[in-house]
């Protein structure tokens, strides 16, 4: 079949260990409605859904790769790119927005070079702009993984970033 050089290159670039994905699939193989749990399991293993695992899942569960891709793009919970160790969620809800969430987003962009849904090259940080996270009282708010930082300012943002950088 015709494949562009680009497609071929992209495929070979990504050589990942399929062992964990195979294990996840083994676990759910005989269950009906197993696609979602399999994809969630794979994401848990790899932190994202590597393309090769989609083809593996397609083959082993006998579903079309296109269909899996449809599911992966429909649900916000799935990530097709590797994600940072630290996920910085910047609340862009109304309250935070009014109190200058935009500036916080800009600061992160300036310091780390990443906007919404982007990841630093060293795979340390991923930024995500999210809707209200239910802490409007402390607006503007950011979260880094499970930790919440309220009433955040540009300076405090810097401090938070530095802290996680130091932790590596």
């Amino acid at each position: 079949m015709t494949e562009t050089a680009e497609q071929v290159a992209e495929k070979t670039e990504e050589e990942i260990d399929l062992g964990p994905a195979n294990k996840v699939i083994d676990k759910y193989l005989d269950m009906s409605g197993n696609l979602m749990p399999v994809l969630q399991g794979i994401q848990e293993e790899y932190g994202y859904i590597p393309e090769e695992t989609v083809h593996l899942t397609a083959e082993r569960l006998n579903v079309y790769a296109s269909q899996i891709y449809g599911v992966l793009t429909f649900y916000a919970q799935f990530h097709l790119e590797p994600r940072g160790k630290y996920i910085i969620r910047v609340c862009m809800g109304t309250a935070c927005h009014v109190k200058g969430a935009g500036r916080i987003g800009d600061t992160i962009k300036e310091r780390l070079g990443i906007g919404h849904a982007e990841t630093t090259e060293d795979l340390l940080f991923t930024a995500e702009y999210v809707a209200c996270i239910g802490a409007c009282g402390m607006a503007p708010v950011i979260m880094v993984n499970d930790a919440t930082y309220g009433s955040i300012t540009v300076q405090k943002t810097d401090e938070v970033i530095e802290k996680y950088k130091a932790m590596g």
Binding site: V54, A58, Y64, A65, S66, Q67, I68, Y69, G70, T73, F74
Partner: peptide
């Protein structure tokens, strides 16, 4: 497959 949702919905290959 249909991919994405809402306004972004479109038809795409894998």
């Amino acid at each position: 497959s249909f991919i994405n949702r809402g306004f972004e919905t479109k038809i795409a290959t894998a």
